[in-house]
Computed example of a mutant assay.
Amino acid sequence: MKADRAGDQRAGARIETRALSKVYRGATRPAVDDVALTIEAGEFMTLLGPSGSGKTTTLNMIAGFEDVTAGQILLGDADIARVPPHRRNLGVVFQNYALFPHMTAADNVAFPLKQRKVGKREIARRVAEALDLVRLGEHGSRLPSQLSGGQQQRVALARAVVFEPRALLLDEPLGALDKKLRESLQLEIARLHKELGITFVFVTHDQEEALALSDRIAVFRDGHIEQVGTPAELYEKPASHFVATFLGDSNVFSGHARDGLLDTGWCRLRAGGEVLTGPVALVVRPESLRIGPPADPGANVLSATVTDVIYQGAFRRILVEFDGGFGGQIRDGAAGPAAPVTIGQRIEVHWPAEAGVLVPGEGEPSETEPPVLTSPAGSAR
């Protein structure tokens, strides 16, 4: 079942959606609206977004479980938008495992092969290989009730790949597991992708999971795709306010761009990178903020009061309120011992110009509900 490493790209199928839309009867807006997405053969693509953003509906249309209102779904060169699910040759893994409780693990894995009328010897060989692939070779005779949640999900994975599908679709498969087990199975899924070499399409609302697993991520919002890119591209160069605040923690200043500066109404911050006009936001990740006076005279510098200090093992989160009333957070300690900080302490906070990302703003800045801190380039106090 392992893919030939020299031919991994041939093991999976290229998937493309063109102007894909889904409108449910009685709905006031489309669940999926004109989605165009290309998933390369052998790629691990994650569809990420909050509840109701359209990511699961898109996956279900690719799988054939939802009818398409408009648009195309190409698997390789063939349009499968009207092809029944059982003829698409796609493996699917659900959050709830969907195992037959009266069948052993081996019989659950064998089920799709029996449906395809594969011979008994071939079934036995493929089932053994699939169970070994998910490291359950010694558990084939157990019923689902005799397996842990993580083991049941691995049986579901084995069942989804045993018939050698052209792509594997995973709908929040780790959502029902606790944090430690979820992280363990993330490594298993990444290993399976490398060993099988087929196309993976993975749905999640967990940002850390998406960053850890994906070759690329498509961020969904209100039925459309907000941005597609590698984890590093999305994290370091978000294209919108939504992506910047949804994917990972962010400090965000909102204001107006004037003369190359961001004017928040209470301070002015020099903006680097792309020049925008009108309402804008500047974004800086918490790990880019530093406490104390900067060595770089071009860095942004703001005064703040510490409101909380949260210890999280490898790092600490320091919550602050800047003098303009903006709340923000700093993440430090990962690089070594950090200086003591106490609640109520007055501090200076700085960040380098290149740490800031300028994105279009979303509406007018509010004086009564100021946004979280943002990160631009040089400082002008």
Score class of each variant (00 low, 15 high):
R142M: 14
F100P: 03
D215P: 05
L74K: 00
S254I: 08
E16A: 14
H256I: 10
L211M: 07
E195W: 00
I198E: 02
L211Q: 06
H86A: 11
G273R: 05
V32G: 06
K179Y: 09
T264K: 05
A41L: 07
H350M: 04
L211D: 08
L262C: 06
L234E: 07
R268N: 13
H256F: 12
A70Y: 03
L192Y: 00
L75W: 00
V161R: 04
I330W: 11
E287H: 14
K180C: 06
R381L: 14
E226L: 10
T199F: 00
G336S: 13
D308K: 05
I291S: 03
R14N: 04
L20R: 13
L168Y: 02
R125K: 15
A218W: 10
A167H: 11
G265M: 00
H193G: 01
S21I: 07
E209K: 04
H205K: 02
V161M: 02
P165E: 04
P279K: 05
G344Q: 03
R14D: 03
R14Q: 10
V359D: 07
G223Y: 12
E208M: 01
V284E: 09
T57V: 13
L282A: 15
S21C: 06
R182T: 02
R331C: 11
I347P: 03
V109Q: 07
R121I: 07
L113N: 15
G54H: 13
A257W: 10
K120D: 08
E348N: 07
V309N: 06
I123G: 09
M1P: 11
S184L: 10
S288K: 14
E129T: 05
D296N: 15
E183T: 12
L170G: 08
D77P: 14
R316W: 00
W266F: 11
I291L: 15
V23Q: 11
G7P: 02
F200S: 07
T342H: 14
V219E: 01
